[in-house]
Design a protein around this nucleic acid. Sequence first.
DNA 1: CCTTCCGTTAGGCTC
DNA 2: GAGCCTAGCGGAAGG
Lengths: 271, 271
Amino acid sequence: MTHGFEYYVKRVMFRLAVTVLLGMDLVEAGEKVRAGLRGREVVVVAGSMEVFYEGRASSYLGEGERLLIIKGDGSVLIHRPHGYEPVNWQPPGSKIDVKIDGDKLLIEARRVSPREVLRIIFHRVLDVRLYRLVDEAEFAMHATEEEMKRAILMEPSLIEDGFKPMEDERRAGDSGFIDVFGVDSRGNMVVVEIKRRNATTEDIKQLVRYVESVEREFGKRPRAIIAAPGIQKAAVRELALHGVEFKCLTPKRCAEVLRRGRGLDRFIQGP
Amino acid sequence: MTHGFEYYVKRVMFRLAVTVLLGMDLVEAGEKVRAGLRGREVVVVAGSMEVFYEGRASSYLGEGERLLIIKGDGSVLIHRPHGYEPVNWQPPGSKIDVKIDGDKLLIEARRVSPREVLRIIFHRVLDVRLYRLVDEAEFAMHATEEEMKRAILMEPSLIEDGFKPMEDERRAGDSGFIDVFGVDSRGNMVVVEIKRRNATTEDIKQLVRYVESVEREFGKRPRAIIAAPGIQKAAVRELALHGVEFKCLTPKRCAEVLRRGRGLDRFIQGP
DNA sequence: CCTTCCGTTAGGCTC
DNA sequence: GAGCCTAGCGGAAGG
């Protein structure tokens, strides 16, 4: 009942050849996917599939070869061989079902709120890979709008010499929140709106709403400054129209200020 | 100079064990990635990496195990073991460089406009997979805003009894395009704005701009109807303020109408 | 090239 | 949970 070493090697090679030509055995593929899900591993399945989505919208994608990625937290992604975005997906928390239906492998990802179903029918599985990935690293993003604000609070002259921030995230009636509220060297109130990209007419209008809210509250119209790396051409006329000032401020410049600030902190507080 | 069959098998198994414990040989991994890029295949690399991004913003992600996916069109995705979104990415058209730097594998994806660099340093490569995927299928999405418009054109009573659409995508001066322009049962002009999600104050304002544009053109103010599944609380007061009417219309209801329409077509024209 | 608008936007925050 | 805003938003369509 025992076979020689060569026998097993040849069996494996035959199996390999069958897999390359016809795809994996679907039952085996399904088992492997299930095992990956149980272990909360990252499951990558390559194969020829149809995809049905029904939920907030609905979509159908005919048969074609793609990558299916299922993560341990229930995120699901389907990637075509081109394009940055997944063609179909399901966010974290989806419940995954795997079953064999005749000669097809069926994978469903369901979510309750909003109620959505993603159904994938594999006609052929080329490959299933399981990855147990360990990733505890912190993701640090710089030069967000939030960081630009922190840079201004740390170094108010980024807006203008003598500018003194008084409050950040000040509520402006029901218009929203003012990014930075302060006073200039002459004691005038100043409302600052920050954008990390070129300012649009909408941005100017929002700033004007803040100005009007402050005017209603204090009976005096504050200066309005929009701090952004640039301004859309169409928005330039709005500036003059509403007496809004523009201050060029790039995310990069802010990042430099913050780096310098952190450097100082380290110097002051020791290593 | 020849070895027995068993010798080679043992060598392969030893290599496999080394790979499982220590990761792939980096030079070999790099060569495989290059081969995949040359062949415009989908390249999937699992491994322990650091990631640097510098462009519109900048980010740093410390060492950890992730999946790197590079597609034939130059799209790059880095996926952590959790979450629906890639932690870092580069859109299609990026130029990919692969090189060995000491005992690290370096992969860079560059883009010119905007100038952005994504730099990935692999400290350990667990696996490299190449997939030559063929996918020519068409992606069909339903219940978009466009489809809601088609449903209204097919079944105008979705807006109100007696409504007659005259034009879709009518230009409204320089304000943009009116979704549906028509007349009601009493011959009044009607401007309809469609949203597949709850209507906002901005949506109401846009509709009012259309109304004013039509009023300038015809010397008569048209009725304004916003058709959406709901309306934001803050936008309710804007309705009365500008005399805009709200008609509840969900993407789902529109999808049903379109399905029924297609069903009728089939019935009328035969199978 | 630039702008505007849509998206199964997602994700984060507040209430 | 609903409501609101931001995003390295991406992508498409129009000028």
